[in-house]
Nucleic acid binder design. Structure first.
Lengths: 228, 228
DNA sequence: CGTTGGGTTGAGCGCGATCAAGCGTGGTGG
DNA sequence: CCACCACGCTTGATCGCGCTCAACCCAACG
């Protein structure tokens, strides 16, 4: 298990180059950063790092999904974010060298681009371009996190699920159909719900024209769902 | 009311220079940034900006407290963050030029340092030092936001209040006493609670040796509270 | 004094967690 | 090939936390 460390192959390199972090970065900038990158693979449920560990690395997801979660004193877990292809996580370690703020776990078989925080910290002070890319990523992660707090505090379970579905529908479609990119239990965690609550939320959305077959979601009337 | 725009006076300048954003920045860096700053004052309940507005400015709190909140469709409000002296907020606008992600309101009479996002965006590409400072601030805000999600999802109201109290006690004190820096209703919002729930949480903490007189909190046995 | 605004207290209720049982599908081995 | 199991998910029943609404308290202030 765990953690086969490899060099970047062509395909991974392409994924990385088109990820939000590097999109729009010059060739030179990109080359500089990927001197300090390795690809690491994990199998489902493998731990990537633990809360409190010293943040030696940060990551960009190449394939698969990563679950960020924390524990309370009794050991109950709560997800605080889910990262998918192109997402960068744990990049706060570059500036807050104390410790990772959460546990990270592979939700399935995944491959990650792994950066050395120490090395990138130096690059940041040398290259405005790299600094700008990282700031944009931080910015985006911050916006998402605040969005998540708002969503938790403002919306009920069915509303959160409806929001999630709508984000995955083309803006102006009348009806739509798509496949969940990951397990329902992971979605439940991402939305701050127990799996049972997600299940019930889905069935309460039937009345709004949403039908679910395995991982496939079908929406009869997108605008009706939006009004829900 | 509202929005007297002034130049930076000596005292404000000092506060700003020692805020996390500028702490550790060189004289030159600091001077460059504060060319683009203005001081703006607001009275309690004044709106600073609205969700969806174009993010022309971002802010660092000089004195007082700012409430960041969002609305759901029915107009119910939920707080997503509270910013106090030295905190910087809405700085994501520098990189996400679409719109503010929340409403910001003065929780009391406040003074803010107001930066032009556009101008600072340019500075960031010129000065690694300024970039680094902003990244550290973004990082810190991101960590806090994720912490907030975790706290909401893992802890009950009394536990959240206990956590808050403990953060305001000296690490190794045996007993402690301090004064809330703002109204209880604001604290309730910050913790994702209705004011009534905060009140009840306080009284349930009596059994753990916490007593409350107005804004003054007294903790008999800090380590007992930590175990709670 | 009366008013206003922040805070507390009480009663009722609804959402979502928890526990437990059941369902369906895919995978493995006899 | 089929029996069996494992796992993800659903469904049902119960319970408790925290929201809501309403009344009340109290201190500050005009």
């Amino acid at each position: 298990m765990v953690n086969k460390i490899l060099k970047l192959n062509g395909r991974d390199r392409d994924i990385l180059a088109t990820s939000p972090l590097f999109k729009g970065m010059s060739q030179q900038g990109f080359s500089k950063v990927i001197e300090h990158v390795a690809v690491s693979s994990f199998e489902a449920k493998d731990l990537i790092f633990r809360e409190g560990d010293s943040p030696e690395y940060f990551y960009t997801v190449l394939t698969g999904f990563v679950r960020a979660y924390r524990l309370n004193r009794e050991g109950r877990e709560a997800d605080i974010a889910v990262y998918g292809p192109g997402d960068t996580f744990a990049e706060t370690g570059i500036f807050n060298s104390d410790a990772y703020g959460f546990n990270a776990q592979a939700a399935e078989g995944i491959t990650l681009a792994r950066f050395e925080t120490e090395s990138v910290r130096k690059l940041v002070t040398e290259s405005p371009e790299i600094a700008f890319a990282l700031m944009t990523t931080l910015s985006c992660n911050l916006k998402n996190a605040l969005e998540c707090v708002a969503d938790d505090r403002l919306h009920t379970a069915p509303q959160r699920v409806a929001n999630f579905i709508l984000k995955h529908c083309p803006e102006s479609a009348q009806s739509a159909r798509f496949r969940l990119p990951f397990q329902k239990s992971l979605l439940a965690g991402k939305l701050g719900l127990a799996p049972e609550a997600l299940s019930r939320a889905f069935s309460s959305l039937k009345s709004a024209g949403v039908s679910v077959h395995g991982r496939v979601i079908e929406i009869n009337d997108v605008s009706a769902l939006r009004r829900f």
